[in-house]
């Protein structure tokens, strides 16, 4: 069985980002790049599933510039078997990514596509569901536990109300939520060893014109500064004055 894990190169989620001076995008000067944290959870989960089911092959794929090799190498170091880099400067929106991933799926024929629920740069939460739609496969989003039984997967899904448990047949698309696992730390020897694992560079199969386009990126307006109150009495009376305790 094969698991395909798409990984996105994103700005370090703990760095302070600013808009470019002309507002055309995010200023990435001096900013580190990482695997999207949710995709890292997906890689980790694939590796853990293989620990229980040794016949699993894990293929990671990234779409973007040659720099994405850095994130693919890390995924290989975590335990993925091989990597595909769709090397391109084309501007993809989530729908375009779904179409490109579909071409990879058609070729690689995985039983499971496991990917992050959202990327922490543009916070869209779309690509996996769009891919599932394009493939006509069922989906289970926001997984907090996954186990394999034959051709079925049992998945705990985080929902608005709590945790829902579902059975989903393969092939399918699953997205990872925060508490699925805690990704392992990869030490330097692992990263060096991963340099010898196969990484294929291929051109994109499709370059659809994006249907969504970033016109401007700007800093949000700051909230007006607040003030400190001296004690609980002042807090409660201030809240009463503001009508905030009417409920």
């Amino acid at each position: 069985m094969r698991i395909l894990v798409p990984v996105k190169r994103v700005v370090d989620p703990f760095s302070k980002v600013r808009p470019l001076p002309d507002g055309s995008g995010i200023d990435t000067t001096g900013i580190k790049f990482e695997i999207n944290p949710f995709d890292e959870i997906a890689v980790e989960e694939a590796v853990r599933l293989r620990e229980k089911n040794p016949d699993i092959e894990i293929v990671v794929v990234s779409i973007g510039s040659a720099d994405c090799e850095e994130q693919l190498r890390k995924a290989l170091a975590m335990g993925a078997d091989r990597a595909i880099l769709v090397e391109t400067t084309h501007l993809f929106d989530s729908l375009g990514i779904a179409k490109e991933l579909k071409a990879i799926v058609d070729k690689e024929q995985p039983s499971l596509v496991l990917m992050g629920k959202q990327a922490t740069d543009y916070d869209c939460n779309q690509a996996a569901q769009m891919l599932a739609a394009k493939l006509g496969w069922p989906q289970a989003c926001f997984a907090s536990a996954i186990s394999i039984t034959g051709q079925m997967l049992a998945v705990n899904r985080e929902t608005d109300l709590g945790v829902e448990t579902v059975e989903i047949p393969m092939p399918c698309v699953i997205t990872t939520d925060l508490r699925l696992n805690e990704p392992r730390f990869v030490a330097l020897p692992g990263i060096i060893k991963a340099r010898s694992k196969p990484l294929d560079r291929i051109p994109p199969s499709v370059t659809p014109a994006p249907l969504t386009r970033t016109i401007k990126v700007e800093s949000p307006g700051a909230r007006p500064p607040g003030r400190k109150v001296a004690n609980v009495e002042e807090l409660v009376s201030e809240l009463k004055n503001r009508g905030a305790l009417s409920a």
Binding site: L95, K117, Q129, D160
Partner: peptide, 18 residues
């Protein structure tokens, strides 16, 4: 969470912007 799960799949099926 429900709308993100469902609406993105709907956009995929309709092949439209989201």
């Amino acid at each position: 969470m429900a709308s993100k799960d469902v609406m993105a799949r709907l956009a995929g099926v309709l092949d439209c912007a989201m």
